[in-house]
């Protein structure tokens, strides 16, 4: 695998391979000596045109645990603020010896552009592009779900998919790259994906892998009885226009309040990609409960990103 640009490009087999690799990576992270020599001598550049402390730190930790060198580039105070183009920035970084470029950009398609225009020969990993995709987030969500479901069933997670598991994604589906990546990946792994949002924030174009869309969250919970609910953050920075009357209105209709949390089946997992707005899309009762995987998702994120770096950077000549 040369690049990771979207989960839509991944086959189910490849995705399971990455999840299995993540399992071994996670295992190495519980040892006293956590550093692996695997990517010694490789250079990884974090090219972030959009603020994201969590994702950048997660990638940085992943690269360092595999012994790669990490260069951080953020657009603030850099040549970009002086008017440099994406192409020139990328070529400059490659001239400095980058083997992989991890790119986050506010424009959808930025990662595809970098990977496919022939500007650079480095591997490109998409760390979020506009409202398009955020593939490593979806992989870590799938990894977290698989581990928890396997634990409940008393099985080992290696090699298995998410067949017939019901996952409900709630919130701003329209602007969310996390939702888009998850819908494509989770359904590919056999899960049934449901989305719930105000009708202004539901996608209206191609909705093919979605099992069913709902506007009413209470009705959706009763009808679907989900195995997991994934709450999304309200992305006010991407909203151009008015989609619902107020944050309070959103909470009462689509937030995971204490009341709705109590109405969920007793085994339902609660997920959130972070950063959370407590009291808006998720209540503290839900976020801090035993069924919440939110902290686990962060820890799994490092292991999954290690696996992605390994799969994009280790393969050589056939």
């Amino acid at each position: 695998m040369k690049h990771l640009l979207s989960t839509a490009d991944l086959s189910a087999e490849k995705a399971i391979e990455i999840l299995d690799t993540s399992l071994e990576m996670l295992q190495t992270q519980s040892r006293e000596q956590r550093k692996l020599p695997t990517l010694r001598g490789k250079t990884v550049v974090n090219l972030f045109f959009e603020d994201s402390t969590r994702t950048r730190i997660s990638f940085e930790a992943a690269a360092k645990r595999l012994s790669a060198d990490v260069i951080n580039f953020s657009s603030q105070g850099s040549s970009v603020s002086k008017g440099e183009s994406l192409k020139d920035t990328a070529q400059t970084l490659e001239a400095m010896g980058a083997d992989a470029v991890i790119v986050r950009h506010s424009s959808s398609g930025a990662a595809h552009l970098l990977a496919n225009r022939g500007w650079i020969s480095a591997s490109v990993i998409n760390a979020g592009d506009g409202t398009h995709e955020h593939p490593t987030q979806a992989l870590l969500d799938a990894f977290t779900l698989r581990s928890r479901f396997a634990e409940l069933a008393g099985k080992t997670p290696a090699g298995i998919d998410l067949k017939d598991k019901k996952v409900m994604i709630v919130g701003d589906i329209l602007h969310s790259r996390v939702a888009r990546s998850n819908i494509s990946l989770l359904s590919k792994l056999g899960a049934k994906v449901y989305v719930v949002a105000p009708s202004t924030l539901l996608p209206i174009a191609d909705t093919s892998p979605i099992t069913k869309s709902f506007v009413n969250l209470d009705l959706a919970i009763r009808e679907v009885e989900p195995d997991a609910v994934m709450m999304l953050r309200l992305q006010s920075e991407r909203m151009r226009g008015t989609f619902f009357p107020s944050a309070k209105e959103f909470t009462s209709g689509w937030g995971l309040t204490a009341g709705r949390f109590a109405a969920l089946p007793k085994h339902t997992l609660v997920m959130h990609p972070g950063p959370m707005n407590r009291g808006v899309e998720i209540s503290s009762v839900a976020a801090d409960s035993e069924r919440s995987t939110i902290i686990e998702q962060v820890a799994n994120g490092v292991a999954v990103r290690m696996a992605v770096l390994y799969h994009t950077l280790s393969g050589g000549a056939k």
Partner: peptide, 19 residues
């Protein structure tokens, strides 16, 4: 031992087994 091999750059990527 997959993650400790010295020939990772010369072979197609392999998925590590569990230790």
């Amino acid at each position: 031992i997959t993650l400790y091999r010295d020939d990772l750059a010369n072979h197609p990527t392999r998925t590590p087994e569990q230790s």
